[in-house]
Design a binder for these strands. Structure first.
Lengths: 193, 193, 193, 193
DNA sequence: AATGAATGAGAGTTCATTCAT
DNA sequence: AATGAATGAACTCTCATTCAT
């Protein structure tokens, strides 16, 4: 993360999170790192190549999000909360993933990358469901693609500013936990604003 | 739809759906309607004003999406399907709403508009739940903000290209219907694309 | 002065005084009168024709300035003061004359008009000198082109914002009166800020 | 004069002299130097900044005009002639100073610059008068603000095309010399046209 | 490895002018 | 006599990209 290339990618990543692709300017990326615009082009011949670098970085970052990090028992619940927390702590990731999602409709290569990533996410969540079911912490019928899909959907929606901003994200997550039968005691999530 | 102003807004709306804000060019919007660029500026002094016009149009379009359109009985299920279908038939709306959602994090005015719209959506869905519960078509406990929130979340995620493109959207929706106890017989939704 | 044509010319005249030719916009001229831009073009086919109208108006206005308006006796001194006062009361005239003077170097027709006007002014002043000399109110040797020229020069310089703004204009005028032997008693002109 | 920045300023200076602010076009300035319009913006972020460069240049140029350049004795007369000659040899300077004078009424910053410059000029001339009086080449009473003011006024008026074009400027100058008692022998100035 | 200087293509915006009504 | 709508041409300014050093 300390070589020029990575610095530039990170700066671009932040620019996209802040201003969207709409507001991404190579000069500002270079300035963010403190180098000349020509230096940026030394590492990335075109803006598109720089964006590819950002895609890689975002995917790597996002992959780390997917990994279950908790204990074996109530791991599923821990997972949902962890993702939620991460999206709040590092909103840039949600913003960039949103930008990439929209862009993927115009960029076949990116579309494939994103599809792969969502598939990986889906499979990861399904694996989590499977294990929880096996441990008896979850009804067997909930070990399915459908349940995995709705979990991924809910978490995805939460990365959008409009939803993530208000208390609705927490409510959706809470209901998800209830249906899965993994809700904690009487939690009354507060809206963060 | 037959006056210049509306034509221009519609052309801009389509441009945004197709190329995002990133690719919105006033000259192409004007060309899309077959008028000179100066004519566009006759109706909209700045690009920003044109975008405001698009926001209005999208909101109006989206509001019509929210309205329950089915019969009184299994209206809830009909509603979910209707929204799903509309997003597939008119993918532009989802794309534009996605663009607006991302942009709202940089545009306070837009942020307010979007928040209002999502709140309206949420309230509409909750109303639907209430009625269904009253008619006995739904467990009473499902008449709540939390359930409404997860429904809105799921539908929102489906408007994103990445999710809507694949079969995962249908799976999420199916599970939603199961939990709500309103799933139809053996439906095997096909992925479109 | 109450017909459309005159109104438009007057509005343009004021615009030029305020913003210079650099800032003259036909639309603002029309707006100043409260009519549509197309109406302006009904009266003046081109912007240039409108400017010609302004030139006429300015010349007419300026000509009235030239005319000696005082009593027969110490008319010369009265004249200098009157011009000075008029330039302060109606600074627009000085501004427009300045703009026209500069423009005349690029516009032969205007150049001729301006030259004629200055010649008329010169002759007028010389006539005043002649009469004053005849009445014994002025040394005979001061009845000359050279003296008329320096009077016109001094008054001209005073119409420029840079000079007219400060106290230097008054000082120049005072010295002129002294040399002509027509200075009043102890006058201490104040700078108008 | 050999770096890009100066070249651009000089080209703009000439454009203003030729066509006024009204006719100043950045593209023509760039073309005048033989560079792309983007290169101009590399050195001057906005047109206004370029104009500021021109103001600096004009002031510097004008300051050199102010400096007395002759011998000590009849320096005063030499000075008047020198300024007169310079304005004829380099009419651009007069034109640009005229444009700046008019613009100063709309631009407070410029107004201050111009006022400072005229004040400097005034003080310079007064210094010249003082020295001439001390040397006995001038009546003591002519060592005053009033005399300096009328000298500056006369020279200023001469920089305007309308006046400078004809023979009136020379006549005014001649009379000035007479009053100052520094006129040469029988000179019959010719109009330069 | 890094940069200052330069550029082509194109962006949003302005403006005098036209024309059917 | 007056206007709303429309336009071509041109304007200032931007941006990704190039290249000699």
């Amino acid at each position: 993360m300390k070589d020029r290339r990575s610095e530039l990618v990170l700066a671009a990543y932040r620019q996209i999170a802040e201003k969207g692709f709409e507001g991404l300017r190579t000069r500002e990326v270079a300035a963010g790192v403190g180098v000349n615009i020509a230096t940026l082009h030394y590492y990335f011949p075109t803006k598109e190549k720089l964006i590819e670098g950002v895609v890689e970085h975002a995917m790597q970052r996002f992959r780390s999000t997917l990994e279950p990090h908790g204990s074996p028992a109530d791991q599923l619940r821990a997972y949902l909360r962890a993702v939620r927390r991460l999206l709040q702590v590092e909103p840039e990731l949600g913003a960039v993933m949103g930008e990439l999602a929209l862009r993927s409709s115009r960029d076949p290569a990116l579309s494939q990358v994103m599809a792969g990533m969502y598939e990986l996410w889906h499979v990861t969540v399904r694996g989590l469901l499977k294990r929880a079911a096996k441990e008896g912490a979850l009804k067997r019928e909930y070990d399915s693609d459908e349940v995995a899909a709705i979990i991924v959907s809910t978490l995805t929606a939460m990365s959008l500013p409009t939803v993530s901003g208000g208390r609705r994200g927490d409510q959706a997550l809470l209901q998800l936990e209830r249906w899965l039968g993994i809700a904690g005691p009487r939690t009354t999530p507060q809206a963060t604003d």
